[in-house]
């Protein structure tokens, strides 16, 4: 009984739990990126660890968060056009956590996280609307026919795997030819009417992302807002195993959530994604 109460009281403060999960994610993520700009990262890690080990309870400065911020900044300076988009989100989140250590106002921290999350999802909507390849359905049409999306569902339609493989092989052969010859390949549809399905799916994606962004903007604590957002995260994970980005979005969701059951759901998604990242499964 005491154990249950302990767990319940621990989950009351989602900001604390979210920060712990963010630290865990950052540890794994930074480790995976360690080989890039290693020369600059080694001193940061060594000095950070020494300071943290000796002064963690003697200073009010969040040493570990500053270390992560510097490590993320090194990657941004070194590989601005190569880092994943969730690298930028992580940078903003760590910045918000550091500010929180000084101002101690939960309201400001939650506002930072809420607005950053809304900006990320809305930017994604804007990018999709501005891309003719996306709104026409051509993007989904090509990547689905090449077997890059819905791999999980393709297992249930074995012939679709064969068609996708044949399309990929044709594309590989095309890439070996001189493009000046103007050769074209014809993609075979892995399922009937893929062209129309792709168009519908493209607009459905835009609609769901827009609704999720608006829900988080207008009602950031509402259960329905989080259900929509969690549905979006799970939907993306089933479409393509984007474990890195989805765990970052889920940590943001957790920071805003007040419903214990949904907090637990966020935690399962985050830890599940982190486990997959450690196993080097998915895209991180």
């Amino acid at each position: 009984m005491k154990y249950k109460l302990d767990v319940k009281s621990r989950w009351k403060d989602q900001i604390k739990v979210g920060q712990q999960l963010l630290i865990l994610f950052l540890g794994v993520y930074v480790f995976l990126l360690l080989k890039d700009a290693l020369f600059w990262k080694i001193p940061v890690i060594i000095i950070g660890l020494i300071l943290w080990f000796n002064y963690r309870n003697k200073t009010r400065h969040p040493i570990i968060w500053f270390s992560f911020l510097i490590l993320l900044s090194i990657d941004l300076i070194h590989s601005y056009f190569w880092v994943a988009n969730h690298h930028f989100v992580l940078f903003f989140m760590v910045l918000a956590v550091i500010f929180f250590y000084y101002h101690k106002e939960k309201e400001f921290f939650v506002k930072n996280i809420q607005l950053v999350l809304v900006i990320v999802v809305l930017a994604s909507v804007v990018q999709k609307v501005l891309s003719p390849q996306f709104v026409s359905g051509d993007f989904y049409y090509s990547v689905i026919n090449l077997g890059a999306l819905f791999k999980f569902f393709m297992k249930f339609i074995p012939e679709s795997i064969e068609i996708a493989k044949s399309n990929s092989d044709n594309l590989m052969n095309l890439s070996k030819t001189n493009p000046n010859l103007g050769e074209t390949i014809v993609l075979k549809d892995i399922i009937p009417n893929l062209r129309y399905r792709s168009q519908i799916f493209a607009w459905l994606t835009i609609f769901v992302e827009f609704i999720a962004a608006m829900a988080i903007l207008i009602k950031p604590k509402n259960t329905w807002s989080h259900l929509i957002f969690i549905a979006l995260i799970i939907g993306v994970l089933f479409t393509r195993l984007e474990t890195g980005f989805m765990s970052v979005l889920a940590i943001n969701g957790l920071f805003l959530c007040t419903n214990t059951k949904l907090k637990m759901l966020y935690m399962i998604i985050i830890l599940g994604c982190i486990a997959l990242i450690i196993m080097k499964l998915g895209y991180h």
Partner: peptide, 26 residues
């Protein structure tokens, strides 16, 4: 002409990945 996939604009999966661009030098 930056790819929507990169640069912190959250435009992944909005156009064909830049890896499919092809550099050709006769």
């Amino acid at each position: 002409d930056l790819s929507r996939w990169k640069g912190g604009g959250y435009g992944m999966y909005t156009e064909i990945h830049y890896a499919y661009n092809q550099i050709y030098i006769p």
